[in-house]
């Protein structure tokens, strides 16, 4: 497979997954704020903080009102990570590999993009926001399903899954982080029914509530452990790393438990940390610090993938900036 093509498939899937997760970000915050006790002010600043685009937000919007944050994360074309920008980039990448992906995949990305663009030009308001976020998630799931059902599960498909799951691992860690940034009215509220409601809302945003419930009642520690360490729930971080590693080995043909390139080495080590770690290891130094460090290591895995598989091709600066994350 051409290096450029592999890169485009990888980024196509990262962008679609990112769009879905941004919808989840907004949802988690909507859910959290709706349940806030009377008299507490809504908190939208934390959401911007978790995405890592705090600076560009403040430069352009100033105060983090609900409207501004939703605008920034969903349909702001000037924010390279907004849902609209993600779909624009996803579609550009899909367009550059149309001959490799199935026609059904292309048409789904195209329809998805047209839906988001139409929503952006009409504008989002509180009465259509929930529908929009649900549509974004459904379109992303549809794309995933079409990919699984119409694309050969060969090298290209593995690059697709790799991109999608690395992106998802990163974003699940950030959804968890929202809770860290979301200040409780008082320290005394930790562990209260109100706190539990917030954790449930968070699980719901990761489509994890029903899956989690089979494990017992909601406690902050158990929820954290579930979203980080579960090996079978598809949005849990460890699950994402396990399957990413499978795909990486399928691409290079090397054995599990060994490595042939930097990408496999770094991902293998990161995964082993979760395989042989427990909740105590994750939270002992502070959950936020753990997630922060995890995100940094995951970025290094992404860098190694680019260097190992995509870099042989000199970067063509006029092409979309598809490689600029």
């Amino acid at each position: 497979m051409l290096s450029r093509v592999a890169s485009s498939i990888y980024w196509l899937n990262r962008y679609v997954e990112r769009a879905e997760n941004y919808a989840r970000f907004i949802e988690v915050n909507l859910n959290l704020t709706l349940d806030l006790p009377r008299g507490t002010t809504e908190q939208w600043e934390p959401l911007v903080a978790t995405t890592g685009d705090h600076e560009s937000f403040t430069d352009r919007y100033g105060k983090a009102t609900k409207e501004a944050v939703i605008q920034f994360l969903s349909v702001d074309a000037a924010n390279p990570n907004s849902i609209l920008s993600c779909l624009t980039s996803a579609r550009e990448n899909a367009r550059s590999v149309r001959e490799v992906i199935s026609t059904d995949m292309w048409e789904q990305v195209n329809r998805f993009y047209l839906m988001v663009r139409a929503a952006a030009s009409k504008g989002l308001s509180s009465h259509n926001l929930h529908t929009f976020l649900a549509d974004v998630k459904a379109n992303s799931h549809l794309f995933l399903g079409i990919t699984d059902a119409t694309m050969s599960h060969g090298e290209g498909w593995h690059f697709a899954r790799l991109g999608r799951l690395l992106e998802r691992a990163d974003k699940t860690s950030r959804i968890l982080d929202v809770k860290y940034f979301m200040l409780l009215p008082t320290v005394a509220e930790v562990g209260t029914p109100f706190d539990i409601i917030q954790w449930s809302a968070l699980l719901k945003s990761a489509s994890a509530l029903e899956n989690y419930k089979r494990f017992g009642r909601i406690s902050p520690d158990d929820v954290t452990a579930f979203l980080i360490l579960d090996s079978t729930f598809p949005r849990a971080i460890r699950y994402c790393l396990i399957k990413s590693e499978d795909s990486l080995h399928a691409i290079s043909g090397s054995e599990h438990g060994s490595y042939e390139n930097q990408a496999e080495k770094r991902l293998g080590r990161l995964r082993a940390e979760l395989d042989f770690g427990d909740l105590e290891d994750c939270v002992s130094g502070g959950l936020h610090e753990f997630l922060d460090q995890f995100q940094a290591q995951l970025n290094r895995v992404g860098d190694a993938i680019c260097e190992t598989f995509f870099a042989p091709r000199p970067v063509h600066s006029t092409i979309t900036g598809a490689e600029a994350q």
Partner: peptide, 17 residues
């Protein structure tokens, strides 16, 4: 270009490839 590559089952390349 992409449609023909897809229908013929051949790679679509750019000069840098």
């Amino acid at each position: 270009h992409s449609l023909l590559a897809q229908k013929m089952g051949v790679e679509l390349v750019e000069a840098n490839d």
